[in-house]
Write a protein that binds this DNA or RNA. Structure first.
Length: 859
RNA sequence: GCCCAGGUGGCGGAAUUGGUAGACGCGCUAGCUUCAGGUGCUAGUGACCGCAAGGUCGUGGAGGUUCAAGUCCUCUCCUGGGCACCA
């Protein structure tokens, strides 16, 4: 065995062994328990970044651990290859998206291999492969047949200079990112999937999955089921077809406090008012400027204008004004809201601004009328100023008001969802073409099976003015007056079912086959918390669609979910003369510290001059605080990178990058190597004979089995890999302290060394592979079973008890493990320091927590 | 603006069920080893007081519940994620 640890050769050897023996080839076997471990596949943007490394290390550790538990493990990898960055790169570098994407994939695949991840590469695919997206097109046409697809007008961000649709991220402060032009909200017809048909089930089935509670809560809130009343105001002066103005409210108990009605600028009544009054028309136009995102809409200045029309209150018949309000959107609900300024903060602010009446109709539970001069009173309470409904509480008022409205056919109880249907059409090139054709007479028809698939042309030139497909007659002209749809699918479509395709990616005849039911559902799905809502909700929806077509049997795609935090790093910068900042990579900066370790100053190595220390932020190109995984692998090896990433923080938290932390991880692996080397040098151990062990040997043995117990729980159940690594570090520390060359001494040391190697092997598989062989094993570590805890070795003869007086620690007692309550109390009370603190006081109570502490309550 | 998280030594973090706050690592300090070190080893390291024994304070802030609170409750401040066309 080499005395020195050299990661490059160790890693090459291990990776060649795994590849030669096809260790990660997953084969369906009905007699074995399967484990499908999946990480969110990457967008092939160019190079792997540390966030990917974190994600995939987490997955690989779990996959290797489960394999050692005897499971038949599937861990695939592929590429989420359609999307905007490829188009942006095409504009910037004059390279076609397909070429750029496949070249990035080749680079990133090499990097994944260098990190030693155990993927079944035979199942790999990219979503931009025709063999993948053709099934998506086929499935879409089936969804059309089933009535789950429809076309309707929807609002998009329109850049009037570039004459193109912008994504929300391309709208910065209401302006197009490239043109700088003021963005307009424009309505165009788009394709939608009826995800709302599944709203109830998407909500209910959250109870079936083992996901973090916070993610389930976010999804529940997103789906947003609420019970309310849909009710009709009558608009007398607007003409028969617009006479009924419908709103939805979850607070019918406040109905008597309605003092105006707010409508969208796109509402038919607003349009009618605009036809009459040009200032209203102008106002409606202004309401359409700015971005479409909910954050934009929620933070913009609330503005409104009186339409001149009035609405008749459905119960009192009183007339209230109808206002156009810029925060009411036609697409959400009915495009109109009833406003109760006394009990809704947004309505309150609007009423104050436009001097509309504020009428309190809810008192607190003691019947006190609320003060609404400084803000709305939004709590539930008892009704006042509400005529026959006075003194009712929320539930009774809801029922009574609903009954009356129903009787008069002016309203009905409704379950409402916040969730909206999924707009799946994009006016972009680099995506899967939507398989629809349009006839000369305006017919819209899905393509037939023999017209499928629609291949995306890859020889294209791209500029900033929208999709080239719209200019390619060879693409869209189908003959006989038929033209093809030039919109492409939202890329969330591809990421909604790739996990299923991995089960049978070689099938050329069908989207999925029976193998999907062997592997699915995914046992654990690992990826960024930023996907908590959209991607995960769409994938759940798609799974249910596939289930209803009989392609999968399970209700949910992902049984367990692990959401990882982001990777952050220090930032350093200098201010330029023009007010901008120049950012320096942490590698180019040295940090000085005082004798306590506090950072005093940071200087740029290149010129020795100081730089400003910025915050610790998400690794990004713009802040120049990224770390290149490849250079780390070259310098320290993949195992060091994997170890540091798993050690620095638990998976859910953000991970702060630290170069000295990486060095520390490397130091630990060198130490592990040296400990194993030294141990082997000391000769062959005997067999452990429990009865013959001395105290030090017994103690190390107990530590070994405590560590096995803790690591098993930390990796398998808690997924806190940082604490598992810390436990192994403690074991190596204990191991280093036992210098015992007797046969029994070497035997317990051997058990401890092997435990370290095997427990770390999912995390640092290469070094452990080699050390295992050096320890004389003839079979490979990857096929070794996970170690078992010897409960007998865990037994202790004595215990340490903390003794508190009035909750403050005053002494520690070492007592036999089987000491009884009376003995414990006597020993605690007779301790010198305890006596000092209870002197002159009477003891009221003694609380004994077995095995932990004694608290003496004295006064 | 709305929804969801998170704030613990100089730093990353640990404390799993209300029961000894600071495991493990980084950094720093001292010493030893080595021709040398960006090596290895040993010891120390929350703050304050004290020669020591020991004591006081301490988990973003303010209250509260409890024999006991980092952990539970109320309010509040700050940071991060998501908000439907970034992936």
């Amino acid at each position: 065995m080499e005395a020195q640890y050299s990661p490059a050769s160790v890693e090459r050897t291990a990776q060649q062994f795994w590849e030669k023996n096809r260790c990660f080839k997953a084969i369906e076997d009905a007699n074995r328990e399967k484990y499908y471990c999946l990480c969110m596949f990457p967008y092939p943007s160019g190079k792997l970044h540390i966030g990917h490394v974190r994600n995939y290390t987490l997955g690989d550790v779990i996959a290797r651990f489960q394999r050692m538990q005897g499971k038949n493990v599937l861990q695939p990898m592929g590429w989420d290859a359609f999307g905007m960055p490829a188009e942006n790169a095409a504009i910037k570098h004059q390279v076609a998206p397909a070429k750029w994407t496949y070249s990035n994939i080749a680079d990133m695949r090499d990097q994944l291999k260098a990190l030693g991840f155990g993927y079944d590469w035979d199942r790999e695919f990219a979503t931009c492969d025709l063999d993948y997206y053709r099934w998506e097109q086929w499935f879409f046409t089936r969804l059309v047949e089933k009535g789950l697809v429809y076309k309707k007008n929807s609002t998009v961000n329109w850049d009037p200079v570039d004459q193109t649709v912008l994504a929300n991220e391309q709208v910065i402060d209401g302006r197009g990112w490239r043109s700088g032009a003021k963005v307009e909200r424009r309505e165009i017809p788009l394709w939608f999937l009826k995800i709302t048909d599944y709203a109830e089930e998407l909500l209910a089935d959250l109870d079936k999955v083992e996901w973090p509670e916070q993610v389930k809560t976010m999804q529940r809130n997103w789906i947003g089921k609420s019970k309310g009343i849909e009710l009709d105001f009558e608009v007398p002066d607007v003409g028969e077809e617009l006479r009924r103005l419908t709103v939805f409210t979850t607070r019918p108990d406040t109905l008597m406090g309605v003092t105006y009605v707010g409508i969208s600028a796109d509402h038919p009544i607003a349009k009618r008012a605009g036809e009459i009054d040009p200032t209203i028309m102008e106002f409606c136009k202004e309401c359409r400027s700015g971005g479409t995102s909910e954050a934009d809409l929620a933070t913009m200045e609330k503005r409104g204008m009186d339409t001149g029309y009035v609405a008749r209150h459905p119960i009192t018949g009183a007339e209230v004004p109808i206002y156009i309000a810029n925060f009411v959107l036609m697409e959400y609900g009915t495009g109109a809201v009833m406003a109760v300024p006394a009990h809704d903060q947004r309505d309150w602010e609007f009423a104050k601004k436009y001097d509309l009446p504020i009428q309190p109709v809810i008192a607190d539970l003691d019947g006190n009328q609320p003060d609404v001069s400084e803000g709305a009173y939004t709590e539930h309470g008892q009704l006042i100023n509400s005529g026959e409904f006075d003194d009712m509480l929320f539930d009774d008022a809801f029922t009574a008001i609903a009954r009356q409205l129903e009787k008069e056919e002016k309203g009905r109880v409704r379950i409402n969802f916040r969730l909206r249907d999924w707009g799946i059409a994009r006016q972009r090139y680099w995506g899967a073409p939507i398989p629809v054709k349009y006839g000369a007479e305006g017919e819209t028809v899905p393509l037939t099976d023999d017209e499928l698939p629609v291949a995306l042309p890859t020889e294209v030139e791209i500029d900033a003015s929208g999709s080239p497909l719209k200019k390619m007659r060879t693409f869209y002209e189908m003959g006989a007056g038929w033209t093809r749809e030039t919109d492409t699918f939202d890329t969330f479509m591809e990421s909604s079912w790739y996990y299923a395709r991995f089960c049978c990616s070689d099938n050329q005849e069908a989207m999925l086959d029976g193998r999907a039911n062997y592997w699915l559902p995914v046992d654990i799905y690992i990826g960024g918390i930023e996907h908590a809502i959209l991607h995960l909700l769409y994938a759940r929806f798609f799974h249910k669609l596939m289930r209803d077509f009989g392609m999968v049997e399970s209700d949910e795609p992902f049984q367990r979910l692990l959401t990882q935090g982001m990777v952050i790093a220090d930032t350093y910068y200098r201010n330029n003369e023009d007010g901008s900042k120049e950012w320096f990579n942490p590698l180019d900066v040295t940090v000085e510290r005082d004798e306590k370790g506090n950072v005093t100053q940071a200087t740029l190595i290149a010129d020795g001059e100081p730089v400003t220390i910025g915050g610790t932020e998400k690794m990004s190109k713009s802040k120049n605080n990224g770390v290149d995984p490849q250079s780390l692998i070259n310098r320290f090896g993949a195992d060091t990178v994997r170890l540091f990433i798993m050690f620095a923080a638990p998976p859910e938290q953000s991970l702060e990058w630290s170069d000295s932390g990486v060095e520390g991880a490397h130091r630990f692996l060198k130490r592990l190597w040296k400990i194993t080397f030294d141990h082997i040098q000391h000769g062959e151990p005997g067999h452990i004979v429990s009865a013959e062990l001395n105290d030090a040997q017994r103690e190390l043995r107990r530590k070994t089995h405590e560590t096995i117990k803790k690591c098993t729980d930390d990796i398998g159940r808690r997924t806190t890999f940082n604490t598992a690594i810390a436990a192994v570090m403690e074991l190596t520390n204990a191991l280093g302290k036992l210098n015992d060359d007797t046969l029994q001494g070497l035997a317990v040391s051997r058990e401890a060394v092997e435990a370290c190697v095997i427990l770390l092997s999912p995390i640092t598989p290469h070094i452990c592979h080699t050390l295992w062989q050096e320890l004389g094993h003839t079979t490979a570590l990857i096929d070794a079973p996970w170690p078992q805890v010897d409960e007998k070795a865990l037994k202790r003869d004595s215990m340490t008890l903390a003794v508190q007086v009035n909750g403050k620690l005053r002494a520690k007692l070492e007592l036999p493990a089987d000491a009884d309550q009376v003995t414990i109390e006597c020993e605690a009370l007779s301790h010198e320091n305890v006596r000092r603190h209870v002197e002159g006081k009477s003891i009221n109570k003694v609380i004994v927590i077995p095995g932990k502490l004694v608290n003496i309550v004295a006064s």
